[in-house]
Amino acid sequence: MFWDWSYVWEIMPTLLRASVVTIQATLLGFVLAAVLGLVMAILRMSKSQWISVPTAAVIEFIRSTPLLIQIFFIFFVFPEFGIVLPALTAGVIALGLHYGAYCSEVYRAGLESVPRGQWEASIALNLSPYITFRDIIIPQAIPPVVPALGNYLVALFKETPLLSAIAVLELMQTAKILGSENFRYVEPITLVGAFFLVMSLVASVFIRQVESTLNRSLRNPGGGQ
């Protein structure tokens, strides 16, 4: 028998409960990534080379090494310094850091696309740099990059199964446990795959929607610069 429906119904409730953890990790991780990414982008664009170059190196370092090792690093190394993190927290931090590095490049593209004239006009109006950034630059820089950020949200979502490596009881880990308990992996793993497929297809449709809405409103931003 290739596919056992009664087994599917039996494991479904357990998997659905686990999917809550997956979604939790995704959302928390992405909030962290969105914030860290903006911070990294701003540091990366600093006029001082003492700040921008090391930041660039850190971003590059995070992007060039495996997320799995970063998860292990945070999970196993922090306790050495007396900070014991629950597995889910360690995983969320690793996800946030990893995708923060990706998001920072997206933010940077957005920030760089704001015309210089906007800074100059703000100086002419005697706005402080902080106010300029908060009220003038950010509102123009972020909306165009929302779809790109959305793509990273989906990518982050698809990487949450890595948390199974430090025994977070998310979908993948739960599926593996179910598989080993019942000696049947076909259904749990296929169901997990189907869950990710459906969620990311829905998400990509949604992102495309946001993209076209944005394009429409950006083309006519009520005045232009």
Binding site: K158, G193, S200
Partner: peptide, 15 residues
């Protein structure tokens, strides 16, 4: 593209 690399790996390995 719609599923994770790890899911694909496990699927090929276990299923």
């Amino acid at each position: 593209r719609g599923t994770s690399a790890l899911v694909q790996l496990f699927w090929l390995f276990f299923v």
